[in-house]
Simulated scan of single mutants.
Amino acid sequence: MEQGTPASSAGVSLKQTNTKWKTVVLVFGTILLAAIVLFFFQHNYFKDPQRLQRLIAKAGPFGPLVFIIFQAIEVIVPILPGGVSGSLGMLCFGTVVGFLYSYIGVIIGSCAAFWLVRKYGVRLLAKLVDPALFNKYYTKLHDSKNFKKLFAILIFLPIAPDDLLCMIAGLTKMKFKTFLIIILLGKPVSSFLYSYILVKGMALI
């Protein structure tokens, strides 16, 4: 059975665990984001992103590689809030190329999240995600008669917690091939729209 039956048990739920490290990451991420925004404003990168792109180009292939790795890690351990890294990619590398790098990183990170949860199960989820948010979405997906379709719809929507959904999918018996197809087709639209709108919004400030 492929759709919606958890690999462990039907009664999966997470209890509140020690979230000290999550708080540290959140604080660090907020400070890092504030520093990046301030730096970009000081150098007028939001108004003239070509200047930033010329600066990044000096790093050669290491710039894109570091960004892709960072974007992949962001899926599993969110350092910057709310998909901001995708917007930074567009500013650093241009709209199309930046989105492509971001997309590659997100796909790698999503697949890694899926396989890590499939291997380590609830023990890993308890360390990475908010229990209340997990229980909310896991209940919706598990109770659905068609997990695969609901998962695909949520992945397509820019407001859904895609990273968490990828981890939840790892708890089910969904085939990796099915998961990958949904991610490959569902991620681009939502990721692009979210990042592009955010970039344009920052440019107007």
Rank of each mutant, 00 (worst) to 15 (best):
A57C: 02
L100H: 03
I69R: 06
Y45H: 07
F67K: 04
A59R: 07
P49G: 00
L100Y: 06
Q53M: 10
A72D: 07
V27K: 06
P49R: 00
P64A: 03
A59N: 08
I104H: 04
L55P: 00
R54I: 10
V96G: 03
F28N: 04
A34G: 08
L100S: 12
G63Q: 07
P64N: 04
G94R: 03
A34Q: 03
V84P: 04
A35C: 11
Y103K: 08
I73A: 13
G83K: 03
I31G: 13
G105C: 11
L38I: 15
N44S: 10
D48H: 13
G82C: 10
Q53G: 05
P61T: 09
G109T: 13
L91V: 05
V96Q: 08
N44W: 01
A57T: 03
F28V: 11
Y103G: 10
I31N: 09
L91W: 00
P61G: 10
L32M: 11
I69T: 14
I108N: 09
G60F: 04
G109H: 11
L65I: 09
S85K: 02
I79R: 01
V37A: 00
D48A: 09
I79T: 08
Q71A: 11
V77S: 09
V77T: 14
F46K: 00
K47Y: 00
L32T: 11
M90S: 02
V97W: 14
G60K: 11
R51W: 10
L80E: 06
V106L: 15
Q50A: 13
L33A: 14
R54H: 14
G89V: 03
F28I: 09
L38Y: 15
L32E: 02
F93G: 03
L32P: 02
F46R: 00
L88A: 06
H43W: 13
V96W: 12
G94C: 05
N44D: 14
A35I: 12
V77R: 08
L65S: 14
H43I: 01
L88G: 01
Y101G: 09
F28H: 01
R54V: 11
Y45G: 01
Y103E: 12
D48N: 13
S110M: 11
L26A: 12
T30H: 02
H43T: 10
L32F: 13
F67V: 05
A59Q: 12
S102D: 09
G89E: 03
M90K: 01
L26Y: 06
K47H: 02
Y45Q: 04
I76E: 08
N44H: 14
G94I: 05
L52I: 02
V106W: 06
Q50S: 12
G82H: 09
I68G: 07
V96F: 08
R51E: 12
Q53P: 04
F28K: 01
K58C: 02
F93I: 08
I79E: 03
I69K: 06
F40G: 00
T30C: 13
H43S: 12
I68V: 15
F70S: 15
V84E: 06
V97K: 15
F93V: 08
F41R: 07
Q71S: 12
